[in-house]
Write a protein that binds this DNA or RNA. Structure first.
Lengths: 344, 344
DNA sequence: CTGAAAGCGCTTACAG
DNA sequence: CTGAAAGCGCTTACAG
């Protein structure tokens, strides 16, 4: 009986009932030591009859393995998170681990005297998504030998934490190549993500690389702030236009922002893609459903999550792991000006 | 040192260093028993200097509280999940609990001999989202006194498990009232969700109630299968039209399906809302961005998640809790035929 | 193949 | 206010 009055069946009950020692029960449970076939049978029967569920805390304490993976993200929501989460969950579940999710507060807590919500004290390893954790904190854990995998973020200087990212630079370059080569646009706008965001930087690099390759000069007036935040992106474009700047196309940085920008432009009476083309990045599931189906770069978000889980578990098991940069590819729909007869 | 070579600081190290017993360290940690101010100071100093993080498993085992809440969902993804999850996480985090997420497999596992991934053995209570768990399993846990809160699902017969749902019936009724009273539609289609889904049933009730109230007969030929699955919904509507049935409006059951149906109709050259109006349910964040901004019913998804977390924690603390049905409200945009000048 | 025993790192009555 | 001791429910060498 615990505080709530729930009578718990323990390994001792099972052992008594089956007429064996608790060591034996433990062995049939864990299947890591040979046990006589008929003994095992008997023990299993009792386990099922008594509906025995081993206490997780006791197992963790005794075995020194938590069998739990921690996930740190700065926020939940949007179109990106559920796909990523889905992949992580799939990877974690496949290997029989539990998943502990912690959403790090945007505004850092004054000073928490102890116990970060996830860490070595309650997990075997961590998946850290972008700005969910500082470089210093990461380094501190990593030097202790604590398994970590970074997701959509590369390793801090001075250490080699395995990571999983996607081809942001190349994907963007091909996207802009398309705008220039197929549609002949020369004045292309770009909305930057958060300044600390690596993915945004890489996309900007790809953006610039494409312009340069085609002998075009980037025009600072056509750069705006998007912050991967739809409303910010929309406002930014409104300002760009009202200040007299007219790009022929805008790369919004991500799909969610593309949706908001598209809406803002349509409300201003701007014709898309004729007057201004819009392209995004991610290929999330709203991309096909927008007023102009969105030309974008497909990012393997789910797979990246899945891969991160795999790398982490390999690491936990002491296997060698290698960082991965997953390929992206261009998805042409109609918001760039193409007329495809293929739906979606 | 554990298997991975991480040297762990334990409560014993802290006690020695501070010149007190481990009992005292435990007390300053938990702040549940008076400790002399200067003793506490000294202990805190040592804790911080040594970077002591109490082992979670040991705490749980000794205290018989896991401080962890389990979340069972049948799947992740779509526009619904991140909002719900966000609310749950907020509620859980506010009260200092950890969140363990388990995605129950769609295809039930053959026969898992033991240990459901979340339950009394590793959590203090469970939030169960819709079909994530069978009535029998719920009942079994509930009769043992294990805290559970159902989310978007009411209690099974014979027991009173607290739940959090939203006003599906009334919300839908008002939505359909609007179509009938304002737009004069009399032939309105409805796409059913999964047969086992309570929310879909309630929406259908609201749908029928509105028709009846206005003296309209429901036409079986205008009912289709949506299953809360966008592609299924779209296909269903294609069939409805190709079989010669022409509703004046379609209530797709949810917003994600509305997006797909809208796309399908536009591709067939059907004019929306003139030839066929489309309305949804949820008011998720893609609703304003669709080709025709979506008229729908706003569902407080985030708040429902938050409330569920609160109810569960109250229950865990032995407080009385009461099921909640959160209000919904109509959001008029343009897909119903209204011309609003107010964006979104 | 099996058991007795130590130990995982804490919390919490029980004394004082 | 503080400490010694029992105990939480397991796992895992160590013997046999």
């Amino acid at each position: 009986m615990n505080a709530k009055g729930i009578k718990k069946v323990t390994i001792v009950d099972v052992a008594k009932e089956a007429g064996v020692s608790i060591s034996t029960v433990s062995r049939v449970l864990n299947q890591n030591t040979p046990v006589a076939e008929e003994t095992a049978q008997r023990v299993w029967e009792v386990i099922e009859r008594l509906q025995f569920n081993p206490n997780a805390a006791a197992r963790k304490l005794a075995s020194k393995r938590t069998n739990t993976i921690g996930l740190i993200v700065p926020m939940i929501g949007g179109t990106f998170f559920p796909l990523m989460f889905s992949g992580i969950e799939r990877g974690v579940n496949e290997e029989g681990f539990e998943l502990l999710v912690y959403v790090s507060p945007c505004h850092p807590v004054p000073h928490r005297p102890l116990t970060p919500p996830v860490g070595p004290q309650n997990t075997d390893g961590l998946i850290v998504f972008t700005e969910g954790m500082s470089d210093e904190d990461l380094r501190a854990l990593h030097v202790k030998g604590f398994p970590i995998v970074l997701l959509h973020r590369t390793s801090p200087k001075d250490c080699e934490i395995p990571y999983v990212t996607v081809e942001n630079r190349l994907g963007t370059e091909k996207l802009i190549d398309h705008l220039i080569e197929v549609h002949g646009y020369t004045r292309i706008g770009f909305l930057r993500g958060p300044v600390t965001n690596e993915e945004s930087h890489e996309r900007e690099q790809g953006f610039r690389a494409s312009l340069q390759k085609h002998g075009l000069q980037p025009d600072e007036a056509l750069f705006g702030i998007g912050n991967f935040h739809p409303e910010t992106a929309a406002e930014s474009v409104r300002q760009m236009l009202s200040s007299g700047k007219r790009p022929q196309a805008i790369f919004t940085g991500d799909d969610a922002s593309a949706a908001a920008v598209m809406k803002a432009l349509l409300e201003m009476g701007v014709s898309i893609p004729d007057e201004i083309a819009i392209v995004g990045f991610d290929d999330d599931y709203l991309a096909p459903y927008l007023p102009l189906p969105l030309t974008t770069v497909h990012s393997p978000i789910e797979q990246a999550g899945y891969t991160a889980a795999q790398l982490l578990i390999q690491q936990i098991r002491g296997e060698a792991v290698q960082s991965q940069v997953l390929p992206t590819h261009l998805v042409i729909r109609r918001s760039c000006g193409c007329i495809t007869s293929h739906p979606s």
